[in-house]
């Protein structure tokens, strides 16, 4: 069974179509990255899923419960910039949330420990940093043990340390529940997602397992670093390579040669021998990144919008 089923979801604000009517299914237990540039409609989708906004058309079913039909689906939700009651302490806020859910013995201290706020449990939230609030936001979403966790840009506004801490906590949730999070930062999605969907101008342009996606769109790139004194010989090599049929593009920047190929096997066989006599300090094959795919899909005419790419 699927954790999240979105069917024909559309949302208009006056004449502006924020969501153009898209379908999306998220398997149970996945860490799902909901990608898209700013303004693509990610936050609107999440707000509808959390019951804060109403869809113009279409529906969202989470763990078998349709959103906005009276019953509350088992979700935990973290808005992009959570704001709290500054006069409460972290522990008081979690106690309040637990009381709303009628939890008998809520694991408040364990939860604060888990998100790294054990030391700040008795401090007023009014004095919390951005990253602390983000982690407390995660704690309040997780406390009632939801089946589906909805996170809106959970790491975008954090500094590198805060981002790493947040991502680590999120990947520890793997297997425990379904995590659905939006981001415009691809590196984060690439690190922890099992599956990704890409939204652009209110349409889902792609949904796939991350590994399939990387394999399918892989356009391997080879990088060769030589000693600076060998630059002339490297540029001669670049000329040689340009003539070969399996080479798409050759880039030479100082003592670094970047090679884009269309036949990985041929490249693997033939590049290395050509390096004989060159003082090579590094020879590496780079995979495609989500960023390459993302830019290709959302910017250009490469993929027609509105069609799902089957993988």
């Amino acid at each position: 069974m699927s954790a999240i089923i979105i069917e024909g979801l559309a949302k208009r604000f006056g004449t502006l179509a924020a969501l153009a009517g898209f379908d999306l299914t998220v398997p149970r237990g996945a860490i799902f990255g909901f990608l898209g540039p700013n303004g693509a409609g990610k936050t609107t989708t999440l707000r509808i899923m959390a019951g804060l906004a109403h869809a113009t058309a279409g529906r969202v079913v989470i763990e078998g419960v349709e959103v906005g039909r009276g019953q509350r689906p088992p979700i935990g939700y973290l808005p992009d910039t959570p704001s709290f009651y500054g006069w409460m302490t972290a522990r008081e806020f979690l106690r309040y949330i637990a009381d709303l859910h009628g939890l008998e013995r809520p694991p408040i201290d364990a939860m604060l420990e888990r998100v790294g706020l054990a030391d700040a449990a008795r401090k007023r939230i009014g004095g919390f940093s951005r990253g602390m609030k983000q982690r407390l936001g995660l704690a309040q979403a997780l406390l009632p043990q939801p089946r589906v966790l909805l996170l809106d840009e959970p790491v975008s506004a954090l500094d590198p340390a805060g981002r790493k801490a947040m991502l680590d906590i999120m990947s520890e949730l793997r297997g425990e529940l379904t995590v659905f999070f939006s981001t415009h930062i691809l590196g984060d999605a690439e690190r922890i997602c099992d599956e990704v969907g890409i939204l652009d101008r209110g349409r889902l342009v792609l949904q796939a397992r991350r590994d399939d996606l990387l394999a399918r769109y892989a356009r391997p790139i080879f990088e060769i670093d030589a000693a600076p004194s060998d630059t002339p010989r490297l540029s001669a090599l670049a000329g040689q390579l340009r003539a070969l049929p399996w080479v798409d593009r050759v880039n030479l920047e100082g003592a670094r040669l970047r090679l884009t190929v269309n036949d990985v096997d041929a490249a693997r066989r033939e590049v290395l021998p050509m390096l004989a006599g060159l003082s090579v300090s590094r020879f590496e094959m780079l995979g495609a990144t989500l960023e390459d795919i993302f830019l290709g899909l959302t910017n250009s005419a490469g993929v027609p919008t509105g069609t799902e790419v089957a993988l």
Binding site: L52, P79, L100, H101
Partner: peptide, 13 residues
């Protein structure tokens, strides 16, 4: 306006 409602309304309130 401050966004506190967006945090508490998804809970059973």
């Amino acid at each position: 306006e401050r966004g506190q409602l967006a945090l508490v309304f998804p809970h059973p309130l």
